[in-house]
Simulated assay, not measured.
Amino acid sequence: MPVTLLNPDGLMKTDVYRQVAISTGTRQVHIAGQVAYDADGQLVARGDLAGQVAQAYRNVGIALAAAGATFSDVVRLTFYVVDWKRELMPEFLAGIEQVARESRITPAPASLIGVSVLFEPGVLVEIEATAILD
């Protein structure tokens, strides 16, 4: 396994993501920002952050699989969320938990960045991923 994830002593402990990813692989996979579009290019879960997080996460999984990777190979996730405020955390996490029930998600190091707008009205979240493969 080319990726080791950990939360070292002295840093906040969390089950949602890991603070550190150590990778030894040689093949990098960079997934462009994924949003809540279905295969037909239609926005899923308009106005529903949890639903859009879940669909965007599923799309990341599809992109990873196309590269021969899984969430276990991910060393970095970046989430961009429109009009982010801490009060949205339960809804945000509900979307992740929804996908976690469907497939195995490894809690890689992640950043959540609040933005005022994404590229299209109605899109609430965008997820980028980086994975390492041997």
Score class of each variant (00 low, 15 high):
17 Y>V: 13
120 E>C: 11
78 T>Q: 15
72 S>W: 02
121 P>V: 05
54 A>N: 00
21 A>Q: 06
10 G>E: 00
18 R>P: 13
24 T>G: 10
18 R>Q: 15
105 I>M: 14
114 G>E: 03
65 A>D: 03
129 A>G: 06
115 V>C: 03
69 A>S: 08
21 A>S: 05
9 D>R: 13
62 I>S: 09
36 A>E: 03
88 L>Q: 13
17 Y>D: 04
132 I>Y: 12
46 R>W: 12
61 G>L: 09
86 R>I: 15
89 M>N: 11
118 L>F: 01
127 I>A: 05
6 L>K: 11
113 I>T: 14
87 E>V: 14
124 L>G: 00
94 A>V: 14
18 R>H: 15
100 A>S: 15
96 I>T: 01
123 V>K: 06
96 I>P: 07
105 I>Y: 06
13 K>P: 12
66 A>G: 12
123 V>P: 05
77 L>N: 09
117 V>K: 13
131 A>S: 00
6 L>Y: 14
16 V>A: 14
55 Q>T: 08
31 I>K: 09
93 L>V: 12
46 R>Q: 12
13 K>M: 11
109 P>I: 05
89 M>Q: 08
83 D>E: 09
112 L>V: 00
116 S>K: 11
57 Y>E: 14
30 H>E: 15
121 P>K: 03
74 V>H: 01
86 R>D: 15
59 N>R: 01
7 N>Q: 11
134 D>K: 07
110 A>L: 00
47 G>Q: 07
57 Y>K: 14
108 A>K: 04
83 D>W: 10
92 F>E: 09
82 V>N: 04
64 L>T: 10
73 D>A: 11
23 S>N: 07
18 R>N: 15
101 R>C: 14
35 V>Y: 06
21 A>N: 06
99 V>R: 06
49 L>M: 05
59 N>T: 02
70 T>Y: 08
59 N>D: 03
54 A>G: 01
25 G>W: 04
12 M>G: 13
57 Y>S: 13
89 M>A: 10
98 Q>V: 08
109 P>C: 07
36 A>T: 06
113 I>M: 10
39 A>S: 00
14 T>L: 03
96 I>F: 11
133 L>A: 10
126 E>Q: 09
33 G>W: 09
90 P>E: 10
2 P>K: 08
19 Q>E: 14
117 V>D: 11
109 P>V: 02
128 E>D: 15
53 V>Y: 09
124 L>Q: 06
73 D>G: 05
102 E>D: 12
69 A>Q: 11
97 E>P: 04
62 I>M: 08
31 I>C: 03
122 G>D: 07
96 I>K: 03
126 E>G: 03
37 Y>V: 00
77 L>G: 04
64 L>Q: 08
132 I>C: 01
13 K>D: 14
17 Y>H: 14
36 A>Q: 12
123 V>M: 04
126 E>K: 11
12 M>H: 15
15 D>I: 03
118 L>I: 08
107 P>T: 07
108 A>S: 13
20 V>F: 11
47 G>M: 05
88 L>E: 01
124 L>K: 08
69 A>V: 11
93 L>W: 00
29 V>N: 02
42 Q>P: 10
112 L>C: 05
60 V>M: 07
59 N>K: 02
78 T>N: 15
120 E>G: 01
118 L>M: 07
52 Q>Y: 00
20 V>A: 13
47 G>S: 06
112 L>T: 05
42 Q>W: 05
